[in-house]
Write a protein that binds this DNA or RNA. Structure first.
Length: 391
DNA sequence: TCTGGGGTCCTAGGACCC
DNA sequence: TCTGGGGTCCTAGGACCC
């Protein structure tokens, strides 16, 4: 089962401000500035406004009474948390895909709750009663079909696709609904005359691979036949932390680049430390006038989470290029490559060496040392570290 | 028309090692 | 003068998703 909140950010704003209800509302960039629409209310969609549309274009289309708001991510995150909690009351297997989307494994819930339709209605009602928002729900034999089913009827929809209905459900839909056919690869297939999923399904695996590449071709071939994973995973660990900003006007002063990297390093470092992570890859991202984008990354020998170290690495990366003087549109910075278990083990062994080297090899001392190491890394890993030393 | 911000994943070449 | 094959890591770019 896939659950997708309807116009999530916009709906929260309309819920919390009754005066906004029934009016076109846009959450996103400030009108007159650079940026795009994050989400807009259904009243705004009637004017053809969509997510990711440049804000300037949205302003051109929308009437003067439109409400424009900047996103309040902290508030939306809190509502999201409440929703996910409510969904856990239906099935313990909830996979949060984003702030407004989740998969639930409801196989085996039928005896407890009832047929799929009853489970779908239950999901919608716990969300409506819990946070006062509507969601669209899709139920299908795998993740792809559930996701496409929740998209099928919006807002406030409930679509159930049984296993023997999958092909009939997919075939007439435009090929762009398939995951991974975006702005570049969808036109590749459209240029050879394909329009619907049925058209794609008529192509052989070999032909699709030839047009899209081996991996993408295989994936699209599977999807067109309704084949996809039916697993609901636990939420996986994040792999990177990044911060970036686009300037209202392109800048040329390297001091502003420096200050921005400094700010981004503080933001990223703060989150990393809060989550107890240290990363060994620092990446700088620069977008010049005209949208030309470059990244430069560096792998450190010692993972870090300190603002100073992250900033230093980023600033060096920036300075090592012939970039100074070019008008800059965006500056960003990221950290990834978390210290692996092996790296942690090596590091703790080093710490152990360091501490033991400083002390007389008395048994009592050794125990104290092990306590010190275990305070830092946990009891289990100390045993691991000691064993490692014997090898 | 003029393109946010936060992510993940894939590709591809080169280095390096066995 | 000609130089395999496989695996892994590093780096840069880019497609795609929400």
């Amino acid at each position: 089962m896939h659950i997708d909140l309807d116009a999530f950010f916009a709906s929260i704003e309309q819920r919390d401000h009754p005066e906004y209800q029934g009016r076109p509302l846009v959450v996103g960039a400030k009108p007159g500035k650079r940026g795009v629409v994050a989400t807009c209310s259904y009243e705004a969609r009637r004017y053809g406004v969509r997510s990711a549309m440049p804000i300037s274009e949205a302003v051109r289309r929308l009437p003067p009474e439109t409400v424009y708001l900047r996103p309040s991510m902290t508030r939306y995150g809190e509502v999201s948390r409440q929703i996910m909690q409510a969904l856990e009351g239906i099935s313990p297997a909830v996979e949060k895909v984003s702030v407004d989307e989740a998969f639930l494994d409801i196989s085996g819930m039928q005896r407890l709750i009832g047929p799929p339709e009853v489970i779908g209605r239950r999901a919608k009602s716990v969300i409506l009663e819990g946070v006062g928002l509507t969601a669209s729900v899709g139920i299908g034999p795998n993740r792809l079909i559930a996701k496409l089913a929740s998209d099928f009827r919006k807002p406030d929809g409930l679509t159930i696709v049984l296993a023997d209905q999958v092909q009939a459900f997919l075939d007439p839909q435009p090929l762009t609904i398939l995951r991974g056919l975006g702005a570049k690869s969808a036109p590749v297939l459209q240029r050879i005359g394909l329009r619907t999923v049925a058209d794609v399904r008529r192509l052989s695996l070999l032909e699709l691979r030839r047009h899209l590449g081996d991996l993408a071709g295989t994936k699209i071939h599977e999807q067109a036949h309704g084949i996809a994973s039916d697993r609901v995973h636990l939420d996986s660990e994040r792999k990177s932390i990044s911060k970036e900003t686009t300037f209202n006007e392109d800048i040329t002063d390297p001091e502003i680049v420096r200050d921005t990297l400094h700010w981004a390093a503080q933001e990223v470092g703060y989150i990393a430390r809060q989550e107890g992570r240290r990363g060994s890859i620092v990446t700088v991202k620069i977008r010049f006038q005209g949208f030309e984008t470059h990244t430069r990354s560096r792998t450190l020998t010692t993972p870090t989470s300190t603002d100073k170290e992250i900033f230093q690495q980023a600033w060096e990366l920036y300075q090592s290029e012939q970039w100074v003087g070019r008008p800059v549109r965006l500056v960003g910075l990221g950290v990834s490559g978390w210290a692996s278990d092996a790296a942690k083990a090596a590091e703790q062994a080093d710490l152990f060496d360091e501490i033991t080297a400083d002390h007389a090899p008395k048994q009592e001392r050794l125990y104290q040392t092990m306590d010190a190491v275990s305070d830092k890394f946990g009891r289990k890993s100390v045993r691991f570290g000691v064993r490692r030393r014997k090898e």
